[in-house]
Nucleic acid binder design. Structure first.
Lengths: 196, 196
DNA sequence: TTGCAAACAGACCGAGCGGTATCTTCTATG
DNA sequence: CATAGAAGATACCGCTCGGTCTGTTTGCAA
């Protein structure tokens, strides 16, 4: 990789981590350049504005990360009951990047940016729809293979499950302990089994 | 009410609405005093800091509001399947204060304040637990009256349902339309029926 | 009516914000 | 090796932030 491209990517990655911990609005450009050891000139050479950087983070960091961690796992298991549960368990209990006290990066961005920034909302909506499609497809395939009842509405279930995930991530912030995830996962398992 | 107390309450109420729309961190004291037509001297007479005002909002506005809108409805219906569904339907589809594009005030506060302000987290945790207790109690009573299966774990179900609510509120921000609530409510109904 | 604290008014402050302007240093290509 | 454009450095700007300070008005008890 060219040096300049590496600088740009490094800014995006470190800024993403900072923003995950501190939120977008309260993470200043000065903080970003301090932790990246990149000067303001370099920063504003690569990004016209802070928001342009924010959007680049969504496109170039968050989107691929979600494809890897949220979508791929759904395609490794034919039984959606198992696939969805394992995905959630992995995200909540095993994922090393995601911290209980800071919640879900995508949910955080949605929470603070969506009501008043149309560009952010558009990208976040795209990202969310990708996950939605992947999960709904997994459920549909599961129906064909007899893992899921035929009368189950896949899109509806997907929305229900995704909502639960975003919500429990917020609960985690309150409790500040992963132990709150366990009863959620248990009930998710019960719910998923009721679909088969 | 004394005039000074009225001023204080007016600040809290208007600030709460502003913060609901704009988020706490991006709502400045200057904005609050501009919309309330209260001067800075008056504001800082009533509240030592912005955070003290924020905590007062949680205690004096949000807490009673949740008791009225989130807890009381659960005690009007003996069958928790109906009570919980009606509560959610009322909150999502009928409540006039809550707007789809701005989400849930309690969830918003939790999202942005909880990771780095222990005082806010404590109050929000209290408020959440009140709701949790009310819903779990409703489910337990429902078990005794035969509306809910005996093997259902009330606390677990409560957590699952509350998570779904917070999550779908976040989805609403993305879609910016109440229509996204309908499939969620439909699946919630399916899930609740699976408990009986 | 006076006295005095409660309540309010508003100019002001230093710090931090996002962003710009100008300059210097790399680096790829002829 | 020359040189032009890419990349990076840094001082600076206007503005807003939360908060302070000093002064004025209001309400109520004596």
């Amino acid at each position: 990789m060219k040096k300049a491209a590496a600088t740009r990517l490094m800014i995006l990655e470190k800024a993403f981590e900072l923003i995950y911990i501190k939120s977008y609005q309260t993470t200043s450009v000065d903080e970003i350049i301090a932790t990246t050891k990149v000067t303001k000139g370099a920063f504003y050479y690569h990004f016209k504005t802070k928001d342009e950087m924010g959007l680049a983070i969504l496109h170039e960091i968050l989107k691929p990360a979600l494809a890897n961690s949220f979508i791929q796992p759904l395609q490794l298991q034919a039984n959606p009951v198992v696939a969805i549960y394992d995905l959630m368990h992995g995200l909540l209990m095993e994922n090393e990047f995601l911290k209980v006290e800071y919640g879900c990066p995508a949910a955080n961005f949605t929470h603070e940016m969506t009501p008043w920034n149309a560009d952010f909302r558009k990208v976040l909506d795209e990202i969310t729809r990708e996950w939605e499609t992947a999960m709904a497809t997994a459920l549909e395939n599961g129906k064909e293979k007899g893992f899921i009842r035929k009368d189950v509405n896949s899109k509806q279930v997907t929305l229900f499950v995704m909502s639960g995930y975003w919500g429990i991530r917020n609960f985690g912030k309150l409790e500040n302990s992963k132990s709150i995830y366990l009863p959620y996962l248990q009930e998710l398992k019960n719910y998923l089994h009721s679909l088969s």
